[in-house]
């Protein structure tokens, strides 16, 4: 393989890794929106929070794998509590109140993190065995990014299993396409909402831990992925998982190649793209509901 081709392939894998991470964050966001109608602006905050949990667990135990197991659960529990004690109370006031509540939440989480952990960037060491390079067809590649892709695929698989093989998954899919139907079927909607919100934040948490060694842990670590996740949800269609998947991968690649070729235009293009899609297809490419 020529060096140029190798570089292209490397960029593609880079983009794929970012796209998969982005999908983990965006899938939670889009499920929560599809089911509850809440655009959770604090979603990326759970990503960051999980990164900090990961840092603390590694400092205490030195075990990355333990952090990968526990930190997202911690973020998920925070999500559960937020839904149970805050969002549920303002549900009757409508979507605007919910949206604004998540704005407040975003600010509070950010400041609490700054107060608890400080504002410096903190390194997270990649676990042993994943910190090296792998060489395939005379091209070297960091193992960790391949691990990111692999792990995301596993999570994706788990998600697909839950969504398509369990009763909860059935309810979620039904609710995304028609929220009234679920309450008509006599399903305990508040409980389902809480579980879904917790699950969504858990997904963001997984992404947060996985991304931590790449991004380092700092208060702004979720800024880009948070914004990108919004673009994914909007362009992919509110509530559409397939849409989110396609657009997340596309954005990942746009990011990888865009930064290389059009560093100034890449972010501009992204938002312009989102604006155009919204203006002409207000519910996104794969969205169906009004």
């Amino acid at each position: 393989m020529s060096p140029t081709t190798a570089m292209y392939v490397a960029q593609a894998i880079h983009g794929l890794a970012y796209g998969m991470l982005l999908f983990l964050v965006a899938s939670g966001l889009t499920i929560i929106f599809g089911m509850m109608g809440i655009l959770n602006l604090a979603h990326a905050s759970f990503f960051m929070l999980s990164g900090y949990f990961c840092y603390t667990i590694i400092t205490l135990t030195g075990d990355f794998w333990l952090a990968l197991l526990i930190a997202p659960v911690g973020a998920g529990i925070c999500g559960l509590l937020v839904e149970r004690f805050l969002l549920r109370k303002v549900h009757v006031q409508g979507h605007l109140a919910e949206l604004l509540l998540t704005v407040g939440l975003m600010l509070v989480i950010l400041e609490v993190v700054k107060a608890g952990w400080g504002t410096e960037s903190m390194m997270i060491k990649m676990p042993n065995g994943l910190d090296g390079l792998i060489s395939v067809a005379n091209m070297t590649y960091p193992v960790y990014r391949l691990f990111v892709i692999g792990l995301s695929l596993v999570v994706l698989g788990i998600m697909a299993l839950i969504l398509y093989k369990t009763r909860l998954g059935m309810i979620v899919r039904a609710a995304v396409s028609d929220a009234d139907m679920v309450s008509a079927l006599g399903i305990n909607t508040p409980l389902v909402f809480m579980v879904v919100f917790g699950f969504g934040t858990w997904l963001a948490g997984v992404a947060g831990v996985v991304a931590a060694p790449l991004l380092t842990v700092f208060p702004g670590m979720a800024d880009q992925i948070g914004m990108d996740a919004f673009v994914v949800v909007v362009v992919g269609g509110f509530g559409s998982l397939i849409g989110a998947f396609v657009v997340a991968l596309f954005l990942g690649e746009l990011n990888a190649y865009g930064i290389q070729f059009i560093p100034r235009l890449a972010p501009v293009l992204m938002f312009a793209f989102m604006a155009i899609v919204l203006a002409f297809k207000p519910m996104g490419f794969f969205g169906e509901r009004e």
Partner: peptide, 11 residues
């Protein structure tokens, strides 16, 4: 931490 207070007020 102005933003903390702002966020709390918001909520």
């Amino acid at each position: 931490q102005i933003e903390l207070v702002n966020g709390l007020v918001f909520i």
